[in-house]
Amino acid sequence: MARTLMKGNHAAVYGAVMAGCTAYYGYPITPASEIAEGAAEIFPKLNRTFLQAESEIAAINMVYGAAGSGRRVMTASSGPGISLKMEGLSYCAGSALPCVVVDVMRGGPGLGNIGPEQSDYNQVVKGGGHGNYRNLVLAPNSCQEMCDFTMLAFDLADRYRNPVFVLTDGVIGQMMEAVELPKPVTHIPDRSEWAVCGTPLNKNLINSIYLDLDDLERWNMALDAKYRSVKENEVRYEEYLMDDAKIAVVGYGCVSRVLRSTVEMARARGIKVGLFRPITLFPFPEKQIRAFADRGVEKVLTVELSTGQLVDDVNLSLQGTLKSDLYYRVGGNVPSALEILNRISELYGV
């Protein structure tokens, strides 16, 4: 199919459409609003539901209703809106409902600003709402990946019956690139076993309440087993010139693109820097980062648009095996490739 120039936010809408998402429930917020606007334009052409909810809370509960009814469903927002959705997300995970949420991160805390940040990392990657649950989290760094990962998110959501996040930032959401649209799916997994749907009505129960203490403990253990299986099977990452790297830079989303330029500038100066880019943030590529030392990496620099959220996971993965540093910019600022290279030179005397 032809390549089309489009914003990352619009690419996410096409990913959802091609994945057979039949309902979008959302609330406007910069810099994610183009996702709602795109869905508002496209979904009605296919008799699919677009509804501008009265609040972020209503939107995620509509997602809960549609998912429980066996539909592929999506919502999108940014920091403050994602905070509001947390209770509903906990219910989705607690009721084992597949759904997709796109978070186009902006500056925080509080109202912050609409510039790009990555400060929703903890609230999205660690769960965020109450109870023992995790979201699967995919981190695209291009408009093509906004489309492809949104589509993939629906498959993962179905496979694990769990919320899946597409976690990106204002840069990737707002920028335009050529996107090759994928073909629409031909098959959506059957959900009649658990969903409230079908004719005659499938008399299932969508529920997350377990009054009996042992029942709830068993359910938590089942969720835990699910997340272990996710960690075993769904780790995704990308490397650039890591094979002979002495210094590994770690970053995701728009930062990983800048880091690619940093690596090229460093190599031009003869400094052996390689890029390690986690694509899944949960599951986190722990084993791959733990293996850095064995591959000859000597230093690790994590670069993020948050004051030390990603680096916690990098350090947990490294288990103290390597010197690990953090460089961050926040408030809507994105570091330049040269700025990061200068930091590398300062830190490591290269």
Binding site: I57, A58, A59, Y91, N202, I206, S208, I209
Partner: peptide, 12 residues
Amino acid sequence: GHFQVPHGRAPA
């Protein structure tokens, strides 16, 4: 068929 839902959100 049944849904049990978060506090106040039944209409949503």
